[in-house]
Structures are given as C-alpha cells and as structure tokens.
Nucleic acid binder design. Structure first.
Lengths: 196, 196, 196, 196
DNA sequence: AATGAATGAGTATTCATTCAT
DNA sequence: GATGAATGAATACTCATTCAT
C-alpha cells in the first residue's frame, strides 16, 4: 500500500503544478521536483505525463461520483437531490482547488484509452444530474429551457469557479451552493413574468 | 490597410488553430501553415506567438465592449440592459466560436504588458456587468447572493459554453440568451420560498 | 539543387558516423557535429534519424542497381555477367566503405515504409544475381548447391568484407573480385572429385 | 553449480533478446524479463550488460574451439581437416542461431578487457583455419588468392548465414557444409580456365 | 512582403546501474 | 538470492525565434 500512498501524493503535487502552470506548460521536471523525486524516479510510479493527468481526473471523478451516491442516499425529493448534488460538487471543488482547475481546464488533453475512460465517467456524471432535472421537470414545467441545456448552464456556474473563486473573499462553499441552487432552481421554475 | 486585413486573417486562422489544439500545444508552424504563410513570413506580421494571442483577445474584447455600448444605447431599464448584454455576449460567442474558446481557455497565458492590457479590458467588462446588477439590486433585494458572486455565476453560465455548445443541437444564441436571462434574473429575484 | 547537395553531404557524414559507432550507438548529435550543423539544423534536412539511415541505404541500392544495369549492358555470356556483377559490387563497396558497413550491418533497423522500400530494392538486387546464376545453371549443372543458397553464399563472401577488408593489406577491389569470382565459379562448376 | 546453471540460462535468454532486437536496442529490462528475473535480480548474476554480452561470445568461442579440437583429433589430411572445421562451425551456428547472430553482428561492441579476451579467441580461431589453408597451399598452389583473403572469404560464406539461413527452406547444416566446402575448395584449387 | 536556412534552449522519455532491505 | 525504489546521464526530437537575402 505504500506505493499507492506515494502515487496519491505525487498526484496531489502534480495537480498543484498543473493547476498553477497549465498541463502543457508544466514540465515533468517541475512535477518531479514538486513531488520530491528525481525525474527518473517519477517514472517509476507513472508511465508518463498523460498517465498522471489521467489519474488525477479519474480519481477526482471517482470521488465525485462516490460522494454523490452518499449524498443522495435516502433522499426522495428531486429538489432536495439537486441541492445535495450542488453541495457535494462545490464542496469537492472547494476542497480540491487544484484538481478542480485541472478538471475544468485540461479535459481535452487526454487521448486514446485515457480519454475514453474519463469521458465515460464524465458522461455518467452528467446523466446523473440530468436525471434529477428530468424528475424535477415532471413536476414543474421548465419554461423554455430544454433539460440538456439547463444541465450545462448549471455546470457552467459551478465549473467556472476555477477562474475566480477565492474562499476568503467569496464566502464558504455552502453559501455558494446556496446561491447556485437558488438561482438555478428559482430561475428555472419561477413565475412567468419577470419579477418587478 | 491591406496589411491590417492580412493581420486580421492571420488572427482568424490562428484563433482556429489555438481553439482546436490549445495555445500551448499549437505550434507557430501550425499557425503559419493555416495562414498560408511560411514560418518566417508570419513574423513579418506578428512579433511572436504571444503577440498573436494578445491581439486575438484584445480584438475580441474591443468588439465585445463596442457591441455592448451599442446594445445599451438609449436603454434605461436595468433588466432590459442585462438582457441586451447577455444577448450581445452570446451572439458574439456564437459567431466567433474559435475566439470564444481561446478567450475562455487561454486567459492566463499572457504576461507583462499584454496581460495588463487585456486584464484591463476584462475588468472593464466585468465592471460594466456589475454596474447593471448593482442597478438592479437597488430596486430588488438580491436574496442572499452578493453582486460580485452573481456576476461570476452569470459569466460561468455563458463562458462555459465553449465546452458543450453546438448550435445545431442546442438552439440559436437568441434562445440560449433567453434561457440564461430567465434563469439568472428569476433566480436572483424570484420568490422567497422554493417554488412548488 | 543546393538543398539536395547538402543532403548528400549530410548522408555521407552520417554514413561515416554510423559506420564507426553503429547506428544505435551513434547519437544524432554526433551526426550533426560531423555534418557541421547544429542539432536542430540537421532536422531541417532530415525528419529523423531513421530517415537518414533510410536515405543512405536507398541511395546506395539505387546506385548499385544503376551500376549493374551499366555493367551488364551488351554482355551476353552469363559467366561474363557474373564477373561484371561481382566487379561492380566490390568496386562500389570499396569506394563507399562507410555505406557498405551500414548496408551490411544495419539492414534490420528500418521499419514501416522505410523497411518496405529498401526491402524491395534488396529483393530486386538478389533476384538480379539469382537470374544470372539460373542462366549459368542451365548450361552447367550446379553440383549439389541449390541456386538460392549459392546466391547467399556469394553475397556472404562479398558483404562480410566490412569486417576485415583493408585495401592496403588485402589488395585492390579488382583483385578481390577476381578471387571471389574464381572461387565461386570454379567452386560451383568444377570437377566432381576434390582436386588433388 | 546451481549458480552456473542459472547464469547459463540467463545467457541463453539474453542471446535470444540480443539476437532479436540487437545488443544496443535491447534493454537490460528486456533481458531480465526474458530471464524471469527482476532488474536488480539480474545484477546478482551479472555485473552489467556488457558482461552478459562478453560471456555469450566467450562461451561460444570456447565451445567452438573445443569442438574444433575434437573434430580435428586424429585427422591428418588437410582437406579433411578443412571439411571437419566447416562442419563444426556450421553445426554450431545452426544449433545456436541466437548466439550466431550475436557473434556475427555484435563483435565490435565489447571494449577493454572484454574485447581483448574475445579478440584473442577470435584470432586464435582464425589462425587455426589459416593454418589448415597453409597446409593445403603447400600441396596445391592457391591460384591468385592469398591465404589470408581466402580465410575471410570462407568466414564470409559461413557467418553471413545469420542474415538468411532458414533450416526448413535451405536444408540441413550438413548439406550446407557440403556446399560451402565444395565451392571453397574446388574454387581455390580447381583448373586454370573457367569451366565450360 | 516574404522566405530558406539555421539555432539555442527546452521537452518527454529511457537507460544502465545501485543500494538498502 | 532477490527485489522495490530510486537516480544521473543520455537520447531523439520540437519549438519559438532570427537573419541574410
């Protein structure tokens, strides 16, 4: 298990480096240095730069999906579900800022098998949220916004965080989740005329 | 003026290349090829790779700010203003998809003078939107969402487009603008309780 | 044409480097240095190490096949043809010692398209010699040695040169050709019993 | 003695790897894997890559020289001796194809002490064959071919095998030995005029 | 206005080898 | 006997950029 721990630590440091410099601009030397390893030492753990990026994204999605499963356990009401999902998403992002940046910005860097696997997770995650919106939509008409579009607008609000969010200045993830949930849900379901 | 035209065309092609491959991954050779120029020929027009990226972003912001000025001319009502701004933003993005990707994804690549100038435009643009929200907020309380946060959530909905938007599948920019405007405004201002 | 000349010179120097150190052991830096170019400068002319090896082999076979065509022009008698072919082969090898070494020793290094093209030339060359032996065999029985085997034994005598031949010590290519021709032809066709 | 057995097996596997990929291109990792050992485990048996190559060549020459001694025991007639030597050489090569390839192709890779020792064996082996040819030459004039050259032409016929010989297609080593012996001896000693 | 030729600095990756256990 | 973990040095190759023409 020591090996797995070491890999987790390398992943953490690599995510920080990728978050700060960008995946392409970051050199594998920077990653090695940040991990406290020699260049060649790093390759003992990871077969290449893309394998590291893959595992960062794969692990992040794994955790995210896992936490969603927990967050939804026992919840029946669809609006409650949505709230929980937003909470979990933002809590994860706020707690893993480097990983969030990497997920949001470097999602097109993977290729081949790596891209396939992460793409699959991503689609699964999107379907999960879409499912909840579909449930909500059966109770309340969505007023001119197709569900698939609504899903991506929601993700937009949340994922764009990586460009601006500063916990000190912008409040806790919970408050943020509150704002996102309120805007999104009232926005989608609210009264027909613009409020005055 | 022929030179300016040529530069504009190079910028267009460069934006396409940067959009497809990413700024870092794209080589200046790719740009030259796409522009139908030799490598050295390209340097006659642009002093370097970053100068091209700079002008893509700078021109895009210039156009965006210009169009906002037009869009807001004579409009008094703050909610109307917001609608116009969202319209203009999405119309520009939908009409300049490559540039949009580059703006959204490569905003941290510039440094020095280039970064300063574009940063200034960006802040000016943000301030413009924030001003409108402030106006709105003086008429209606914003229910738990600080204006600065609201601004970035709005930009999130719009800028995240580059990861998913397909005009064929997701409808015209106008419809999209409608959805964004509706969600955002009703969301911010809508009734105190979750709608049922 | 200047570019072609430059490439020819690079090829020559590269052949010397590959001959001395072996293709694998030679670094592309060594080749660049020998060619009087910077590392990157070399890549302006050749797309990679294997492209250089390919052109060395390809050009050598081209010349070899060309010279054989000349050498055989107007010759009718098969034994005469064989003599001419051996002469041409050894003359080429003695005059291009570095290329010879590279041809003999590095024939399995190429892959893909490169391997195909050179392999085709090689087979064409072998067929040419085999054709001559077939002609000879129709006049004289070959005494227990199948033509294909005979061909490779002949090539063995000639190609192994790269491991030992020193013009100063071992005589001119013509004398060598004489020896090879004599041994091979008398050996193949000579009397039934071992001479005493 | 178990250690010696293990070393012999490693040598065998290493010879196969070197034969297939070439000494330079083969990595010591490949050798370890082929030998069923970890990388570090291999170093318990051999002090380095070159030590393995050395022992492959050294053992091969040792066996070759030993078998020649046996083959020549009690033989008086020089032409008989030559036949025995060719037989033994080809039998060994056909029975140790990987080693043969390595001997023929990688003879210049060793350096220092290793190169000296194997070089000494090689020279001893060459002298042995040269001695036999000298004996033959005292009975029969060699017609224009100096003995040293003749020796290398003979080795050429035999050592080039590694590039083409396929037992299925080209017949048994004995038949091959017959062909080589016949060509070489009749070629060297046969009648003054070209046979018609 | 445009280019062919060239380069210094940098990239990801691989290799033979070592050493504590 | 054997190995997991680690490394310094090297490799092929690419890049943004320049300059004489």
């Amino acid at each position: 298990m020591a090996g797995a721990d070491r890999k987790a630590e390398i992943r953490k440091r690599a995510a920080e480096v990728f978050a700060e410099q960008g995946y392409d601009a970051a050199s594998i030397r920077d990653v090695a240095r940040a991990a406290g390893l020699s260049l060649a030492g790093l390759y003992y753990y990871y077969q290449g730069k893309d394998a590291i990026l893959f595992e960062i994204q794969h692990e992040a999605f794994r955790t995210l999906l896992e936490q969603h499963a927990e967050a939804l356990a026992g919840v029946k009401e669809p609006q409650q579900k949505l709230r929980r999902v937003i909470d979990a998403h933002l809590a994860f992002f706020a707690g893993n800022i480097a990983e969030m940046k990497v997920m949001a910005r470097e999602s097109e860097q993977l290729t081949g098998k790596f891209a396939e696997k992460v793409g699959e997770q991503r689609r699964r995650y999107v379907r999960l949220v879409r499912g909840i919106l579909d449930e909500i939509a059966t109770h309340h008409p969505l007023r001119d916004v197709p569900v698939p579009v609504a899903v991506f607008l929601l993700f937009g609000m949340m994922n764009w965080l990586y460009t601006w969010y500063d916990p000190e200045r912008d409040g806790s993830p919970e408050r943020l989740a509150n704002a996102v949930h309120r805007i999104f849900l009232h926005g989608l379901l609210g009264g027909g005329r613009a409020p005055e």
